[in-house]
Computed example of a mutant assay.
Amino acid sequence: MSLLTQIISRKVLALFAVASFSALLSSTVNAYGQSPEEIAARIAPIGNVCIAGEECEVASAAVATSDGPRSGEDVYGAFCTACHSIGVAGAPKFGNADDWAPRVAQGMDTLLSHALNGLNAMPARGTCSTCSDEEIESAVTYMVDNSQ
């Protein structure tokens, strides 16, 4: 086989490999059962920055008035579940009594203080900047009650 034939064969093989890999990546469902549209929705930005003097859309959800405090379950589902469902960075897992026992032993005031002010990798208010103290307390109570 001549050198030119070898080079062409390698390039064709490389092109085939790249095409096969591209087809694999662009399949309609990934290994986790999510379509490209579901992935795009999951990783979409959660906000925009508005600069004074420029046109800016106002997010209706942020401006909307509330009919009262959200339940602990609602707050957990919207803000806490991302970390507490799988134990991100040592977060006590929802429903796991062993994870919660040492924290519960410190008392509800300490748990609430950690939730409001943050602790270790958990940010203050657990990423819910719009939650009232009452809503944070409800979420903590919901997690504790369901983890004993």
Rank of each mutant, 00 (worst) to 15 (best):
A78R: 10
Q106V: 08
P102I: 15
S71I: 03
P45W: 03
G95V: 07
A78K: 10
G68R: 06
S113T: 14
P92H: 06
N120G: 01
T81N: 13
A44D: 12
E54H: 06
C128G: 05
K93E: 12
G77K: 12
G68S: 03
C50P: 00
C128R: 04
V88L: 11
G90P: 05
P69F: 08
A91L: 03
N117Q: 09
G87I: 06
I51D: 02
A89S: 14
N117T: 09
I86M: 13
E73K: 15
L116I: 09
A44N: 10
E54R: 06
V49G: 00
L111A: 02
L119D: 05
A115W: 01
T81R: 14
A121E: 15
G77L: 12
S71V: 04
C50Q: 04
G53V: 02
P92G: 09
D109L: 01
N120T: 14
Y76D: 04
M108I: 01
D99Q: 07
R70A: 03
P92M: 10
S60Y: 08
A44Q: 13
G90C: 10
A124V: 09
V75N: 00
A41L: 10
L116E: 09
S66C: 02
N96S: 11
A62C: 06
A121P: 07
A91F: 00
A44F: 05
D98K: 09
N96Y: 08
A124P: 02
P45I: 02
D74N: 08
S85D: 13
Q106L: 13
V88C: 01
G95M: 10
I51N: 05
D98T: 14
N48H: 11
T65D: 11
A105V: 06
G126D: 09
A64K: 09
G72R: 03
A121Y: 15
F79A: 12
A64W: 13
G72F: 10
S71C: 06
A97D: 02
T127M: 13
F94D: 07
M122E: 14
V63I: 08
P45Y: 05
